[in-house]
Design a protein around this nucleic acid. Structure first.
Lengths: 218, 218
DNA sequence: GTGATATTGTGATTATATTCACTACTATCA
DNA sequence: TGATAGTAGTGAATATAATCACAATATCAC
């Protein structure tokens, strides 16, 4: 049998995830330029600013259409908005934070969420001392309320900053309510639910990579 | 024409950075297995646990030699040690943390550093209220002492969690004292110094990637 | 207007990463 | 001991990503 998803992905042009990640990088630089009052930018300028080749930048953008004008380059503000539309941050999305330890607290005061249209609508914790209180203007719930709160706020993305124990079970339970995207800070492998995605942020792995690279020069 | 760099890289076997990143993932799972008392593991078992193909796992390991035994698989503890030796975490390395805001504080209490042989030997801050004090057992210095402290502790890796302003200048100054590896949490592009490496941890980019992916299903 | 210039978007090419598929082998057990 | 089942390591094939290089064309100076 062929699922709905198969059919859709067959029709849909495959997009490189490398490209999608770079869009965010371009976008940040575009906003910096916009802030400086720059109106138009050429591919080789922007590319050099973010450290990629001009050809790659053009190819990345061409994946989604044709946005530049010959001999004038790309309109900074327009391209910023376009990328926002592509990645889907043109409308605010509700996210839930799981775990309010040191990392969770740091994430709560991370301004990048709102800047990019992500609204931390709820916090979940197992610690009864935290449940029921409000942190940085966000209410902290116990896991009993999980389904209700996620549905009520229409949560789209879950940020995992909890303990490693029971993480997979938590993910599965959250996925069952309809959440498909998980940003995982916990140094523990989780399987993505069906039709879902897990992105891992692995500090140790990055550190070990750096260690490997710098050792190589000696 | 053949450049100096070409010659050097020809001698040195090129190693895929994808492979290096996966080594860390394998390693974490190996430690979990070791903790559970597992002595030997087959490529397809370990591969399925971490979500890669068995062929890829074997290829990754084969980059660095031949560690498994036919029909018995890989010795869990030995492979763990081997990976440690490859990435260079068999000896403790001193790292410095730049910036003691919310994120910096969270990183200070992140146990992954010590677990992987990284010792946060010093903190640097511009806020005079913090300079001179001790946080989580680590002394906080002002930028005046930068060169002295880095040399004294033989700092190898810099973790960037400061403000975006003046980041490039900071990196260049730190690189001038011999630090070649930078782990950048600041949402701002930095150019790697000559013979140096910058690894970015970009939370917004990961979020936008998730947003893109989950939107795609609708 | 018009020609000179410079840039985008893209087909063709190259480089890199992953997977396939098989060989040589080793532990196990009859 | 010898047959068997099943695995690691790897050359070959495939898939994916990055780069090259150029045709088409918009802008601008005059």
């Amino acid at each position: 049998m062929r699922t709905e998803r198969d059919k859709r992905e067959q029709k849909m042009k495959p997009v490189s995830l490398h490209t999608v990640e770079r869009l965010s990088v371009y976008r940040r630089m575009l906003e910096e330029l916009s802030h400086e009052g720059v109106e138009y930018v050429h591919s080789h300028q922007l590319a050099s600013l973010v450290g990629v080749t001009a050809a790659q930048l053009r190819r990345d953008l061409a994946t989604f259409g044709s946005f530049g004008s010959i001999a004038r380059g790309y309109n900074v503000r327009e391209m910023d908005r376009t990328i926002g539309r592509i990645v889907g941050t043109d409308v605010t999305q509700a996210v839930a934070l799981f775990g309010l330890g040191d990392l969770g607290r740091a994430l709560l005061s991370y301004r990048g969420f709102e800047e990019r249209g992500f609204n931390v609508a709820a916090i979940f914790e197992t610690d009864p001392d935290k449940v029921g209180h409000v942190f940085n203007g966000r209410r902290c719930y116990g896991l009993d309320d999980l389904e209700t709160v996620i549905r009520h706020h229409d949560i789209r993305i879950a940020i995992l900053a909890s303990r490693a124990e029971g993480l997979q079970e938590l993910v599965d339970r959250v996925a069952a309510v309809g959440v498909r995207a998980f940003l995982n800070f916990v140094p523990k492998r989780v399987n993505a639910p069906a039709d879902g995605f897990v992105e891992n942020i692995d500090i140790s792995a990055k550190l070990e990579k750096l260690s490997f690279l710098s050792r190589r020069l000696d």
